[in-house]
Design a protein around this nucleic acid. Structure first.
Lengths: 113, 113
DNA sequence: CTCCAACCCGGAATGATTCCGAACTGGAGG
DNA sequence: CCTCCAGTTCGGAATCATTCCGGGTTGGAG
């Protein structure tokens, strides 16, 4: 189960993981998917992404990067980048930052053509 | 109702808006708050923010900026900045970007002391 | 005064996620 | 080989923010 999740780099939803897992373990339940995800989240092996109006998605790449969401087909694409201003933001706002989230919404090339 | 929402710059949740609105209009219902928010969203006068594990928050500043969320007290603070890499991301990924979201999670100064 | 559209109401429905207690499993130790 | 136990999984019920719905109110045009 853990393998099924961590090897799926397509930013799947819980339901998509559930369906994929079913093909290997037909008796698996959605509860198991959620509890495994909770465990992996706690270990910082997956990052939970919330996109407006869609199910949560799970990202196996926990490094800091931008996620691009296609609002037409739901595809999520990673884009590496180092957020440049965390220190500056911390000094100017007084926050101690533990995590960042950077997302763009748009239409991907395949959907546009 | 529209005024109550658009003048509240504290990044309130729907429930918080509801409670504030009740003080002026004791008979107001949560449905009205949600439908007004839906209208304002459609007009791009408010931006809906989703933070992991919390109610959605509503931001009256629809300009592009970073939102800092204090995971202890729920306070949300704005931090102006112009996302530097949208064009670069578009050419490298083929996406046509319509909107960006930039969030940091952390602990605010009052909560830390 | 009448009518209509826009707004509002309460309450029920939705649906992803979480919670719960019971059943299963596989390996450690006898 | 058996027993036991902790960890995993199960299904189904509960949660709860949000959405949906059908009916009531209202205020301004004509």
């Amino acid at each position: 189960m853990v393998d099924i999740i961590t090897r799926d780099l397509s930013h799947p939803s819980a339901r998509a993981i559930f369906q994929a897992a079913r093909e290997l373990h037909p008796s698996i339940s959605l509860s198991t998917v959620y509890s495994t995800l909770a465990m992996l989240k706690a270990l910082h092996l997956v990052k939970e992404l919330e996109f407006e109006g869609m199910d949560n998605r799970y990202d196996m790449d926990t490094e800091s990067h931008v996620n691009l969401l296609c609002t037409r087909c739901g595809r999520v694409v990673d884009f590496d980048f180092v957020p440049p201003l965390q220190n500056e933001v911390e000094t100017l706002t007084g926050f101690t930052i533990s995590e960042g989230r950077f997302e763009y919404y748009g239409i991907c090339a395949p959907c546009r053509s």
